[in-house]
Amino acid sequence: MQQNQKLAKQLMKKSKTARYERFGHLLSLSALLLIMAIVLGIIIFIATKGLSTFFKDHISLKDFFGGVIWNPGTQTPSGQQAVGALPMIVGSFLVTILAAVVSTPFAIGTAVYMTEISPKRGAKILQPVTELLVGIPSVVYGFIGLSVVVPFVRHTFGGSGFGILSGTFVLFVMILPTIVSMTVDSLKAVPKYYRQASLALGATKWQTIWKVVLRAATPGILTAIVFGMARAFGEALAVQMVIGNAALMPHNLVSPASTLTSVLTAGMGNTVMGSLQNDALWSLALVLLVMSLFFNLLVHFIGRKGAFKK
């Protein structure tokens, strides 16, 4: 019995190992909480700054989202504050939607080629090239846009060459690799026997691709497109370099325009913290943040509706 008690005592003593475990658990948890705090910090900071345009400077939502004249600190001819963000919002949405519309068929076509038609060549050439292109910095895209796309647009359509069209071109090439590689992933996730079953029923290769494979991969492809759009919407420098940076309502695709990001990058350095000019810029950043959250939500929604049931 005495021996038992001695053993029990030994077994109940908290070992060094137990202390290690506690320490490690807390350490890793605190790293995670730090990231959580950063995310909350970003949202709170930017929301606070962005909302002060409305609460501190008493700009109405209607003037901000509906106004078309952007020159914070001055007044429009009709006497309102010139904080109309509509031109930038329209610009951002236009380049994003146009780039997605142009990219999607190219991306899906390429992805189908890589997985269904010529997987070998796809894996050997296209895969590494897309991977490299996903990683090319956006300033490089912007620089090529500036030295190739803008002159091309100028020669073909006249004008300065800067504008929505050039922005669309640059973003198209930029988000193409992103959409391609994610679409490839979702096509690869379609089980092999779907294809075999379809072909065995006498469907042609094209019918199999169109009616079976693409249909099954639709949620994945939609996610890829949303990701591409999110990237396009949030892209700052590449667009800023080719769009012309005129905070005007775009009346055609080749006139200088601007996006939320381009006005932000160009303007933030030239305003004084706390001034209306500065607050209005933070409101643009808030719109950007909210849109990013919206894209996130969209991805979740698609994911939940279309998760592959295996």
């Binding site: 950063i38 970003i42 930017i46 949030g234 950007l288 894209f295």
Partner: peptide, 28 residues
């Protein structure tokens, strides 16, 4: 799942927004 969502949000934030936050917090 909350934390995973937070990380996803952070990864999809436009880098200019991250930059502006850094400007606000670290620079100012």
């Amino acid at each position: 799942s909350t934390i995973r969502t937070a990380i996803e949000i952070l990864s999809s934030l436009p880098s200019v927004v991250v930059g502006l936050f850094g400007f606000l917090l670290f620079v100012i």
